[in-house]
């Protein structure tokens, strides 16, 4: 056990130091897909979260409960759902999204939308109602008020974005079903890890896991640095 972990660390370092081309390619692709998904999902979720937070409407509580329930949707189910839509027999077959990085991005967006919307709403609710009233009293309209509250809650929202990115880059259900784990095209960290594990390359899998963690750490540090600047 201990030997295998030491071996995995050694292998991880070796792969990084030698700039293994396949590893670099997989790293870039994983980052591209998951960062794009996180960015797109954030651009969708934060305004939606703001609207849900700001307006009082019938069924608001139920809607929030529903969104929170969707946090725990298995990634494979999201993958299957999208697969049925974009597969050649599905209604969106003409988009030709199956087995493409773009399809994976859409899948990951769907996967992390509930978390991002839900956590955005929670983050905004966490901002004191007095701040909301202050903005309104100072003459802010609905849009300006939502923007102000989002700014007030930016640390919490940033946390939600980090969490969503973590879920996106570590998920395997969408990556396998929508991406198809095509070498050189849709193969990402998680699908490589599951492939290498089933091939018996346990050390390589653990090494890849370490690299994935290291990347997540770097991204979190970057975001923390951004937060710390203020």
């Amino acid at each position: 056990m201990a030997n295998e972990i030491i071996g995995a660390v050694e292998q991880a370092i070796y792969l990084i130091v030698t700039l293994n081309p396949e590893l670099i390619e997989i790293t870039i692709r994983s980052l591209y897909i998951s960062l794009s998904a996180t960015l797109i999902a954030s651009l969708i979720s934060i305004p939606i979260g703001g609207v849900i937070y700001y307006y009082e409407f019938h069924g608001k509580r139920t809607l929030i409960n529903l969104i929170q329930t969707l946090y725990s949707v298995p990634t494979v189910i999201v993958g299957l759902f999208l697969f049925l839509l974009i597969s050649q027999r599905g209604p969106l077959a003409n988009l030709n999204l199956l087995f493409t990085p773009e399809g994976m991005i859409i899948g990951q967006v769907l996967l992390i939308l509930p978390i991002l919307i839900g956590f955005t709403v929670t983050a905004l609710i966490g901002v004191s109602n007095q701040i909301k009233e202050l903005a309104i009293a100072l003459g802010a309209n609905a849009y300006q008020t939502i923007i102000t509250i989002i700014k007030e809650a930016r640390y919490a929202i940033m946390g939600a974005v980090i969490l969503a990115f973590g879920r996106a880059i570590s998920e395997v259900g969408v990556a396998i079903l929508i991406g198809g784990n095509i070498r050189g095209f849709t193969r990402v960290f998680t699908t490589t890890i599951s492939l290498e594990t089933s091939k018996g390359n346990i050390e390589l899998s653990i090494a890849l896991g370490f690299i994935l963690l290291a990347i997540a750490l770097i991204i979190n540090l970057m975001l923390n640095y951004l937060q710390g600047r203020e």
Partner: peptide, 10 residues
């Protein structure tokens, strides 16, 4: 060539 691999069923 793009080789898609999944579980047997899929």
């Amino acid at each position: 060539v793009q080789v898609v691999s999944g579980g047997t069923g899929i």
